[in-house]
């Protein structure tokens, strides 16, 4: 789905609407221009350039905005932006020039988030944002996501970690076998009610509209 959303793989069906307007996305650049950001569940494959520095990773999706007319990069501004995210997210590293591959999983995840937040998204999709990272980093990631939601960013969290879903979500959409199976309000959703929909026990759309 994410690949289709970003215009890399063609969508088999359905359409994309952003703020009520239909959007045709043919390339990642177009997706970014529409304010979309997608933080992949797979840090190594779709996420980070591990041999590159933290700063280079954070600035990559909007590298154009750091280059002048001749393509010369403003490295000071790159460093400043990376530093802002590193401090705000408490990324722990030997320095902004450290290759991302040398960081711990949790810190890599934060670099991923920083990279996409740097594009100033209006819609942020995070896929399994805390899989395989330790509890401290997980709490940090949750804090960052809540903060962003507070700033008015629409956030779609894709997660198979139920407690995470329940603690973060305003609305819970349950998918079963690739299809939307039901929707619950985040305030009243419980592990049990979500599981009931996920397993197909509850017919149609669950107890909330």
């Amino acid at each position: 789905m994410a690949l289709a959303l970003f215009g890399i793989a063609p969508a088999t069906a359905g359409r994309i609407e952003i703020e009520g307007r239909p959007a045709a996305i043919r390339s990642p650049r177009e997706a970014m221009a529409l304010g979309l950001a997608y933080v992949s569940e797979d840090r190594r494959k779709l996420g980070l350039a591990l041999s590159e520095s933290i700063a280079a990773n954070v600035t990559l999706p909007r590298i154009d905005s750091y280059a002048n007319r001749w393509g010369w990069l403003d490295r000071r501004r790159e460093m400043a932006d990376a530093a802002r995210f590193a401090a705000g997210m408490r990324i722990k590293a030997a320095g902004l020039s450290a290759p991302v591959g040398t960081l711990s999983g949790g810190n890599q995840q934060k670099v991923m988030l920083a990279k996409w937040l740097n594009t100033n998204p209006r819609i942020l999709i995070v896929d399994e944002p805390t899989r395989g990272i330790d509890i401290g980093a997980k709490a940090e990631v949750h804090r960052i996501l809540r903060e962003l939601a507070g700033q008015g960013v629409a956030i779609l969290v894709i997660s198979s970690d139920l407690p995470e879903v329940l603690s973060l979500a305003d609305r819970v959409l349950v998918m079963r076998e690739g299809r939307l199976a039901g929707e619950l309000p985040g305030a009243t959703a419980t592990e049990e009610s979500v599981m009931r929909i996920a397993l197909g026990a509850a017919e149609t759309r669950g107890e909330a509209a």
């Binding site: 970003f6 890399i8 390339s27 990642p28 650049r29 970014m32 997608y38 992949s40 190594r44 494959k45 779709l46 996420g47 980070l48 350039a49 591990l50 041999s51 590159e52 990559l60 999706p61 590298i63 990279k115």
Partner: peptide
């Protein structure tokens, strides 16, 4: 370094 990630970042 990571072709898939680079494509995703619009390169």
């Amino acid at each position: 370094s990571n072709p898939d990630a680079a494509a995703f970042a619009g390169i």
